[in-house]
Nucleic acid binder design. Structure first.
Lengths: 337, 337
DNA sequence: CATATATTTTGGATCGTTCCAATTCCAGTA
DNA sequence: TACTGGAATTGGAACGATCCAAAATATATG
């Protein structure tokens, strides 16, 4: 017979009752060491594998956390996802990662599937727009849900929101460019109307208005491809622009590639700052200045807050902005190596 | 009472039996449309959520596929993972993605956790080395297991292996560089001793020997950082080298950045070809020539093979190399725009 | 209309674990 | 020896779905 062995088989093999086997499985201290050893030997002998579905059915508490990411292909989010998974793993929780691919319908399906699978909590970097039923469903489930990096639902008492203080980063980046001598600073990338775009733009706008400088903004998707295309547009339509703050590093790297292609490599009179400080920023040429969001640290903090919520019923603050830090590299500095 | 409603509650609400509710849940065609509607209304009214753990316990067949990836941060693997997940989703299977982070111990833990969660099959791009117990465990589980992209276990009748025909790509890339006038072609990146490094190197070596050209190889991690560092080493120690085949695009992009930093931008007498043809290859400057592995297509093929195995007991071939295609771009062509 | 057949619906058994109250074991004490 | 109390072990009742064979209902046939 090919049937998977159960704890009853183990119990028979070890000459104890199924309850004792269950206690061993749970690492209870109240079984005698000798008995424990016998049970463990029996398990190894008959090749027993734990059936978590059965256990969950009875105990309801599952060491499973769901993670839904709007775009897992973006390295920034990949880093967040992998760090969160590893941090939770070190606390005995398994994480299921899913990619919503910026598709609200898929996101809804994934969330429903995770609830069905009985996750104990959910972390979501949501897709924008059309997501209200998803959050209504989450609200009904009563699960601990953390919104991270993107705020798609305003009910932050229900879905506490943690992200970075992008506005402050934007101010710092703009001041830095002005200090370096830039006078026509464009903002490139970010889809218009989104909260995160507004935030990353707000500091730039504020500083420019204070300084009485002109504003040029090119909006679009947050991809390398858009940056490439934006370079051409900037050169053709706004030749006076001498610096750019990009929505993220991917856009910035694309923009730099675009300027290089046009024969005006960044560093020679044109300055660029990105957002996120992904690993590649330090490795590109020229190295890219970026508003650094310590995403690994952020993922660890998120894990800690989530654990506090799940384990100690200690609900996180509704809004929590993490500090950012401007890392100045050659792409924005006056002198060029 | 805060108890989650069960199908019995739904049945009571709708005035039918639990069996009927179960049939509706499974989308059985044998319930009358009127009854179905009544049940669905009842579900909505009392906010029923399906309990998959309970269902799995009885039926054993779970629409769940595990995916373990050696390094999810590598965009090549991220693309594979997300495409596989989406393809399987369109066939009604949920996918749990986990990142082993090149850590054999973590990989073992993840695999064990997935088996416990009752996945119906597993796709693994394994970590190299120390993984034998992991595969022994998988063999014992009797699950359909596909090894993809990396072969860590030689028992390919048990764990069918699918990857790309890297050797052919390597031949094509080397011939191409020679055609373009290169005479000193280095191989950069890839950890020595690994099957995949041997494969990607084999064609290069073969062609060089045929042509009677010298061989220079720099081995290291498959990261942008190593490429950056390799550029300096190449310039300092092997100034005669006039072209490079890189283990992957990340190394190639790092190498190009390194050459640019050293004031010898690629395209002016130095040619580079990478492997994988990640999205960024076309967007860098200069655009990077690469041996294209259509990873999205590969992920879809993998999904199809896995489904055939799971559903029709149709076991895939033990070894299946997918064709690759050289995409020549400015980084390896004679003339520079 | 009675009967045969097809379509829907149903109650009980079952999956493999955990939980709980109850029982057994055993060393220490009177 | 008989008794006690804590430690170790146990059997039965859940958990919430699916499966199956049987029952109820609807439809077709002569």
């Amino acid at each position: 017979m090919k049937r998977r062995p159960t704890i009853l088989d183990v119990a028979a093999q070890a000459g104890v009752s199924k309850s004792t086997v269950s206690l061993v499985l749970q690492g209870s201290p109240q079984v005698k060491p000798g008995t424990r050893a016998a049970v463990q030997t029996a398990m190894a002998e008959i090749g027993y594998v734990y059936n978590r579905a059965a256990a969950n059915l009875r105990s309801a508490s599952v060491g499973l956390v769901g993670l839904v990411i709007n775009d897992l292909r973006n390295p920034f989010f990949t880093e967040f996802a992998t760090t969160l998974q590893m941090t939770l793993a070190s606390h005995g929780y398994a994480t299921v990662i899913a990619n919503a691919d910026e598709d609200p319908a898929l996101q809804a399906k994934l969330v429903a599937s995770m609830i069905e699978h009985g996750v104990a909590a959910l972390v979501i970097s949501p897709v924008y727009g059309e997501g209200s039923e998803t959050f209504d469903q989450l609200a009904r489930s009563g699960l601990p849900v953390c919104q991270v990096l993107r705020k798609a639902d305003e009910r932050t008492e229900l879905f506490p929101f943690a992200s970075f203080d992008y506005a402050a980063g934007s101010v710092a980046a703009t001041r830095h460019l002005i200090d370096q001598g830039a006078r026509n600073i464009a903002f490139v990338g970010g889809l218009p109307g989104r909260a995160i775009t507004r935030e990353r733009k707000s500091g730039w706008r504020e500083v420019l208005r204070e300084a009485g400088l002109a504003e040029v903004a090119l909006h679009g998707k947050s991809t390398r491809g858009f940056g490439l295309q934006a370079a051409d547009q900037l050169i053709a339509e706004h030749p006076q622009v001498d610096a750019a703050i990009c929505f993220n590093d991917l856009v910035a790297l694309g923009l730099m590639a675009g300027f290089a292609r046009a024969g005006r490599p960044v560093g020679q009179g044109f300055r660029v700052v990105g957002f996120d400080d992904i690993e590649e920023a330090a490795q590109s040429w020229p190295p890219l200045s970026s508003v650094s969001c310590d995403i690994a640290q952020f993922a660890q903090d998120t894990a800690a807050r989530l654990l506090a919520w799940m384990v100690d019923q200690d609900r996180p603050a509704p809004e929590l902005p993490s500090a950012v830090r401007l890392v100045a590299r050659a792409s924005s500095l006056g002198n060029e190596t």
